[in-house]
Design a binder for these strands. Structure first.
Lengths: 213, 213
DNA sequence: CGTTGGTTCGAACGCTCGATCGGCCCAACC
DNA sequence: GGTTGGGCCGATCGAGCGTTCGAACCAACG
């Protein structure tokens, strides 16, 4: 039970990380409930029971994948936000961070967006908190942007936030990395599409473009 | 095997429809693979084996839910499109149709957007075709709108289509009908958000509003 | 009344799953 | 060189799953 908290050696951590990566692939491919620990065992070259040395249940495995992804996205965003005070630039950073992370960790991010409801109890609550923190941070960015453009739209901020996340997360349903638009362009497209609409006639996207390095 | 094609009595069809509704609720609640036929049996008040008189497998059940929802959305849209020649009005009709149908059939629509990958083989192909038809129709509406506004954006239409569907589908992750904004307002918000961004500085959303009855 | 055919059911089959348990291996340390 | 303990495994358990099968029910019809 306390197994996975005891050893903190880098070797142990590395192998856990590898297992999480393989598991994320399987979960993304087949969905959480259709994926089996036995297949993880096969693909990772570890015996079925040997896996349980690294995590204590299938659900904890799912939790760790989601928690680590979310943490990395959040930390990355907070780090990038320190570099810009300008509202439009900050939103652009947020979109670039999210879309970029999605493109580089597609499996884990698919699991993150699709398998929230597969969690239960304490695990679900922890992930919900992180998601809420992320979502609130995003809403604040939109509030800043709205204030800076001086527009007093009636569009509720939570609707705008939902719409923005929807845009960013849905884009990958038909996205193959490499075969499609490069990530930078995609982020920029979404940024312009959203800001052009969000700040509307008050300030079209074209004029925002120049402000950011 | 050919069971479910033989009887076409209205009574039979009604009961099947009721089973599909209950099943959609369970699928939406727990996800396809975590939902069990036994629970459907319990909730519907029908014996486990009795269910198989109405469908031949769990996957066919999932297929029927998705197929019927998609058909109704598509038919509803085509019907409404006949009433408007004006590009912005047609897009507004599309968004209103989609969002409205989502609000009234939340369970089935959640299944439709979340459980596509749970299908396999022929079932998956049939649903993919329908989704493609819907998506293409939407892309055409955007092409019309872009042409009518005279803008020559570089934003790829397939990206715009994905973003639009993302907005519409994601909005319901945090939506409780009744406790939140009425559907009409929500549709209008999304329409303005999207068109304001999509047709950008060329034609802000506010000026589009008046054109439609 | 007997037969049909749509409808329903209880019981069971075969299978896969997540999880557990006792023990083996082997490097590190006394 | 004996002991410890992290790492790993084969064998197996109990549970739940989707599905099937043969029989029973019952209104309609001859």
């Amino acid at each position: 039970m306390a197994k996975n908290t005891l050893p903190a050696t880098s070797e142990h951590e590395e192998k856990l990380e590898r297992l999480l990566a393989v598991a994320a692939e399987i979960f993304a491919e087949k969905g959480y409930h259709h994926a089996s620990i036995r297949e993880l065992s096969r693909r990772a070259g570890v015996s079925l029971s040997g896996l349980y040395y690294y995590f204590s249940s299938k659900e904890e495995l799912l939790f760790m994948i989601q928690e680590r992804s979310l943490r990395r996205v959040l930390d990355g965003l907070k780090h990038k936000l320190k570099r810009s005070d300008e509202p439009a630039g900050r939103l652009r950073a947020m979109i670039g961070n999210h879309v970029g992370f999605f493109a580089q960790n597609m499996a884990a991010m698919k699991v993150l967006t699709h398998e929230f409801d597969s969690l239960e109890g304490k695990y679900k609550a922890r992930i919900r908190d992180l998601r809420l923190e992320y979502s609130n941070l995003c809403t604040e960015l939109l509030r800043e942007l709205r204030r800076s453009t001086g527009s007093d739209e009636v569009l509720p901020l939570n609707v705008a936030t939902s719409a923005l996340f929807g845009m960013m997360n849905w884009i990958y349903t038909g996205y193959q990395p490499g075969s499609s638009i490069p990530v930078d362009r995609l982020s920029e497209h979404l940024f312009r599409l959203f800001t052009g609409g969000f700040s509307s006639s008050a300030e079209p996207a074209a004029s925002l473009e120049r402000r950011v390095g």
